[in-house]
Nucleic acid binder design. Structure first.
Length: 536
RNA sequence: GCCCCCGUAGCUCAGUGGAUUAGAGCAGCUGCCUUCUAAGCAGACGGUCGGAGGUUCGAGUCCUCCCGGGGGCGCCA
């Protein structure tokens, strides 16, 4: 049983003994930022004060007395503080036990909070049009979606990642036209695709002078290039879902029929409309244009019908760039019109990114190829760079920083910590030192401030991973791992593991502490999709 | 006009209800290498948390309005 569990149970029991009713969710047990506030702290007295009509400090005092009587294991002091917090001070041994827990659980099972309860969630992300190479923004949200999937999987969600391939419609025709124009040596139409890759594809295309076939050829080749780029970043998908396939399968018609049955379809100006204002949209939307083509929205709604009603996901998370904000209202409304609880569809909008020193015209970040960034700074740095900040914030990425081989560069800083640990282990082997089983190590010798800080940091990982999953914010894992790496470099500087000056027993204890840190680094880096190297 | 995101140190950003001194990294300043990688560690400096009201025992964090930046409001995708 963890210390946290013991304290939480103790608080509930103490409140019960005092006949104070409470909603358990309101009571928080946190690790305070300031050491003088103890090892753990609860706001229980503050949140129940109003309902029992007593001053928070009075409740806190009563709670303290009850908790003292309870004599919880390893708790050496309970005190009321500030406006009514109850702070717990624990024997240092609680950290040693926590370290044992980390090592016992290991990389596989440490920090795997059961939050998802097996809920089946689909995360759709990137879904870039196969009309050109991926840009920086795709890598940014691709890293986000992939890391979010990893974090949620670790927390007990059953995750599937999907890439929606927009392989049909006007843009593919336009791509075909652009390619054919290039092959004829003519100028590409003004709204067409001007990129040099079109010229290259035109040279490879040996098919007929047919827009559809040329478009398909080009989009397939480009999609292949997209896959390769994503693979370089270790961004994986379970499914590549074709928009063309959903249109050809008749599902669009079935979806529109469903809307019709609900009386949400009408004709106007020769087009077929969805009365989406009935279900929360700001305006009605066209499903079938007057020329007979289905709109992107109609396909997208058929696609979401497939996600919810055919494949039966409990929850769907769509990750879009902020430039797709216009789709949100109609998608939500369409899903509602299908009789699906709109809260089961989560749409995360990532703000647009810019690059330091590359003067942006409008959305300039989007014109920088992802492949060239990976060439420049490497895959690990590209991923970590993308996971440094919240996607809610329009950020300016600094490529130069990520190229430096020094502490200023977060990816090197963190990976270097892992490499240093591996170096210690190599040195240990060289010196013929065996690591004794942890049960035989005297962890009580770990009392240096650096050592205690490292253990405190490790204790926080399950909480951090859980928050990252619940808030769909994998960058919280990045923050944590940078912190852990920082603590480790401090420890490394002040506390030698292998040295004639260090007693054998302390060496053994430190070897296990270092192993705990390695586990923490390995877990966090794997969630972020960044390699944990043994040497640099 | 309406909708979404943001405004925190010179720069890039954490922090999204909790504790009389709001954090990190970088830039600039100062120390520390016969030692497991100095690709490191430490110290000092640096902020009216865009502004004004409000809710609360408690607000950078929640609500309202205003100012500023980005994005979006197609029979495009």
């Amino acid at each position: 049983m963890t210390t946290e569990r013991r304290l939480a149970d103790g608080i509930v029991a103490a409140l019960a003994a005092l006949h104070i009713p409470v909603e358990p969710q309101e009571v928080q047990l946190v690790r305070p930022a300031r050491p003088e506030h103890g090892d753990w702290s609860t706001n229980a007295a503050l949140v129940v004060a109003k309902s029992v009509g007593r001053a928070p400090r009075d409740v806190a005092a009563a709670l303290v007395a009850a908790l003292q009587d309870a004599e919880i294991y390893e708790v050496v002091a309970v005190e009321a503080a500030g406006p009514g917090f109850v702070n717990f001070k624990l024997a240092t041994s609680w950290l040693h036990h926590a370290l044992m827990d980390v090592v016992a659980a290991g990389e596989e099972t440490y920090a795997t909070p059961e939050l998802g309860a097996g809920e089946r969630v689909q995360i759709e992300f990137v879904s870039a049009n196969p009309t050109g190479p991926l840009h920086v923004g795709n890598g940014w949200l691709g890293s986000y979606g992939d890391a979010l999937g990893r974090v949620m999987s670790r927390c007990g969600w059953e995750v599937e990642r999907e890439f929606y391939v927009n392989d049909t419609g006007g843009q593919i025709r336009l791509l075909g036209e652009s390619l054919l124009a290039r092959r004829r040596g003519e100028v590409v139409p003004e709204e067409g695709y001007q990129g040099e890759y079109v010229t290259q594809l035109a040279q490879q295309y040996e098919g007929p002078e047919d827009i559809v076939q040329a478009g398909r050829f080009a989009s397939e080749a480009i999609l292949e290039n997209i896959r390769e780029t994503l693979e370089r970043l270790d961004i994986c998908f379970d499914e590549w879902y074709s928009q063309a396939s959903i249109e050809e399968s008749g599902q669009v018609g079935e979806t529109i029929e469903l809307f019709r049955e609900r009386g949400l379809v009408y004709e106007d100006d020769g087009a077929i409309w969805l009365r989406s204002t009935e279900v929360g949209d700001t305006r009605d939307r066209v499903l079938i244009r007057s020329n007979g083509d289905v709109t992107y929205l109609a396909g997208d709604l058929a696609y979401h019908r497939d996600k919810f009603l055919v494949r039966k996901f409990d929850r769907v998370i769509d990750v879009f760039g902020a430039d797709h904000h216009g789709q949100v209202a109609s998608l939500k409304a369409g899903v509602t019109a299908l009789g699906i609880d709109r809260d089961r569809l989560e749409i995360r909008l990532g703000q647009l990114v810019n690059i330091v020193g590359r003067r942006m015209s409008k959305r300039s970040g989007n014109f920088i190829k992802l492949d060239s960034v990976i060439d420049e700074i490497g895959a690990d740095a590209t991923r970590l760079l993308s996971l440094l900040n919240s996607i809610d914030q329009a950020t300016t990425l600094d490529l130069e920083l990520m190229k430096r081989r020094s502490m200023e560069n977060p990816v090197f800083y963190v990976q270097y910590a892992h490499a240093r640990i591996a170096a210690i282990d190599r040195k240990r082997a060289e010196r013929g030192i065996e690591r004794v089983p942890i049960s035989e190590a005297n962890l009580a010798l770990l009392i240096h401030d650096r050592e205690l800080e490292l253990m405190r940091c490790l204790v926080d990982l399950p909480y951090v991973v859980g928050e990252a999953a619940k808030e769909r914010a994998p960058h919280k894992v990045t923050n944590w791992v940078r912190l852990l790496a920082g603590e480790f470099h401090g420890f490394y500087h002040d506390c030698r593991v292998l040295s004639d000056e260090v007693p054998f027993e302390l060496t053994q204890a430190r070897l296990w502490l270092v192993e705990g840190v390695r586990i923490g680094l390995a877990i966090a880096l794997s969630l972020l999709g960044v390699r944990a190297p043994d040497a640099m």
